[in-house]
Simulated scan of single mutants.
Amino acid sequence: MVIYTIFVLYNNNLSFMKKLLLVAFVFMCSYTTVKAQAFGIKAGLNFANFNGNDADDFNVLTSFHVGMVAEMHLMDALSVQPEFLYSVQGAKTKDETYKLNYVTLPVMLKLYFTDSFNIHAGPQIGLLIGESDSFTTFESSTYDLGFAGGVEFFFADNFAAQARYNAGSTKVSDKYELKNSVLQLSLCYMF
């Protein structure tokens, strides 16, 4: 339902902020029907770049991500964590910076080895909501599908540090062979 709503909103002529607020509202409402054990907020740094045959001249772009998470325990050591994030991705060259602004929806399956340490992996869909002027000539794709995986460590009451790698599986441009590649370092606070 959330992905369908994002698709409908993207194809309507609403302002960026209205789209973002409506998607956030739908995301939060969809989780009132499931019993999440914890909700949280997260933010951190992105170290983004492009992979692919046409990615030779690109370098790492340092940017950020911020958003909300909800965790539902399936068993003692297994949980599912859907997230709703605003993430600035892209790359840079010697002369230009190429920024792609996404609303991403990763769904992580988390396997706990201890109460404070887990590994997680799962699919991620991103909806392009904005781009830098320098990227418009690339004819960017609306969606970014990919896979993410990483580790998480709870170091204090309700605080966690995460390291995650996101690998895009779809091209970010209709004209070039470029895919997103993002290393994320995050801090998370669970309520």
Rank of each mutant, 00 (worst) to 15 (best):
H73F: 14
K19Y: 06
F58G: 12
V182A: 01
T33I: 03
D174K: 15
K42N: 11
F147R: 05
V103L: 15
L145I: 12
S63M: 14
L109C: 01
L20M: 15
D95N: 13
T114N: 08
V8M: 05
G150S: 11
H65S: 05
I129N: 04
K42T: 12
D76Y: 13
T62K: 10
V182G: 00
S134C: 07
C188E: 15
F154D: 14
S169P: 01
L109H: 00
L85R: 04
D95G: 09
Y176L: 13
F159R: 02
F135A: 08
S186K: 00
M1W: 06
A91V: 04
L178E: 03
D157A: 09
Q89D: 05
K94M: 14
K92F: 01
H73A: 08
A161T: 05
M68V: 11
Y102R: 07
G149N: 04
N11P: 15
A91R: 06
Q81P: 04
F27L: 08
L178V: 09
F155R: 02
A48K: 02
G150E: 11
L21T: 04
Y102Q: 04
A121M: 15
T104V: 10
M108R: 02
N180A: 02
T136L: 08
N158C: 09
S134D: 12
A77C: 02
A38M: 12
L183H: 10
Q81M: 07
A161C: 11
D56S: 14
Q184C: 00
T93V: 01
N158I: 06
F113H: 05
L9W: 03
L14V: 06
F50P: 06
G168T: 04
S15H: 11
G149F: 12
S15P: 14
S63N: 10
F84E: 02
M17R: 03
V182E: 00
S140F: 00
L20V: 11
A43N: 07
G168H: 13
Y4E: 10
Q124F: 00
D56Y: 13
N180W: 01
K92I: 02
V34Y: 03
T170F: 02
D54V: 01
Y4F: 07
N59V: 00
Y112N: 07
G40S: 15
L45W: 07
Y189Q: 09
G168P: 01
Y165T: 03
Y98D: 09
F113I: 13
F58S: 13
S186R: 07
V88S: 08
T104G: 01
E131Q: 11
Q162C: 07
T142G: 05
M190A: 11
A121F: 14
D54M: 09
R164G: 02
Y176E: 03
V88K: 03
M190V: 01
G44Y: 03
L9Q: 08
V23L: 12
G67Y: 04
